[in-house]
Amino acid sequence: MSSPALHEPFEAIDRQRLSAALGMWVFLASEILFFGSLFLGFTVYRSLHPQAILEAGRETNVVFGSVNTAILLISSVTMAVADKAAERGLRRMVVGCLAATAALGLAFLVLKGLEYREDIHEHLVPGPDFKLKTPAAQLFFGFYWSMTAIHAVHLTIGIAAVCLFAWRVSRRAFDFTASAALPSLGLYWHLVDIIWIFLYPLLYLGGRAP
């Protein structure tokens, strides 16, 4: 009658699923304020030093940025498919989609790493031998490095959780159809994706209009 996924203190699996989703939404609200402060700071500096921020914005590598945006968007699709497949109890489909999601996430990190290497090579790390002369251009890269690094930390946590979940599903370790873990993980993954969708125009598209 009752599902093995049902835990104390809940008495019904539906309520437990709703609660897990609510808990994740509440946590995501917190995450939005977390990144929101960064967006606010960036916006303030952009209005204080418009020219310098645009000048610095032209230095990021738009190819890496765009390819990574595409990769993350696709990973959100595979995540959503995994979620839907779990509702129907399609175990192999779930494992496959989760593996694809994790692989795409890893691909994003690898590309990001290559991009970082190029940035370092081009003296885009704030400091005495920074590439641009305008002092405020370094502010842009202060935000570039902190925003993308914090985003990468979130993505790494997401990849680890997806891998763990895929492994447990493939080992038939728990009742993934009833459990609320997958929809919650999906919500988190999509948030990390959406944050990037805001980061992409801020960091890669500013200053490039003809």
């Binding site: 700071g41 303030v44 500096y45 204080l48 030093h49 310098a52 704030p126 400091g127 002092p135 405020a136 370094q138 502010l139 890269f141 202060g142 935000f143 490095w145 902190s146």
Partner: peptide, 17 residues
Amino acid sequence: AERLFGLPIFDPQHGGD
């Protein structure tokens, strides 16, 4: 980030606030 990596976020010398 500012202390460890020298990223100028609030540094007035670079126009930070």
